[in-house]
Amino acid sequence: MFATYWPSRRNMVFGIVFVSFSALMAFETLRKLPIGTPANMGPGFFPLLLSISLGAISILAVVFGQSSAQEEPLKVAPFRAVALVLGAPIVFSLSIDPLGLFFAVFLSVLFSTQASIRSKIGESILLSAGFSAFCVLVFIYLLNLPLPLWGWLIAG
């Protein structure tokens, strides 16, 4: 009867990701957290309830989801752009303590500008430097946020 039905590839990926995540969470809960009783729930009760429900719902979502026949082509940003955008917070994180706010903003913003195919390096450097100076002015001098202007590497 259901011979022609097969979940779309997107839904297969969804099912695999969600079911394994819920299994992992359930496993972690059972291994580390006391479950308790309904009258006196332990820290593991709610997470266990949630992970079991999540697994069940995810399977249902795949079963009742789009079939492969309806699948639309997937549009994904170029890997380079994804890596540069997602990498920016990491650059910021690595540079904020040693270099301080100005350089952390400068480096991470400059890093992210390269994600666009239309950016030119000269323009990008100008933009990043101007923006960093603006942020220092606003956040440190105007709003007095307790952010380090220069990190330990520079200020010593």
Partner: peptide, 24 residues
């Protein structure tokens, strides 16, 4: 535009707890 939005967001995330971990 997008690098500046990203810049503001990163400062926002960092300044809540002054935690570099939050950016990861």
């Amino acid at each position: 535009l997008f690098p500046t939005i990203l810049g503001f967001s990163m400062i926002g995330v960092y300044s809540v707890g002054n935690s570099a971990f939050d950016l990861y």
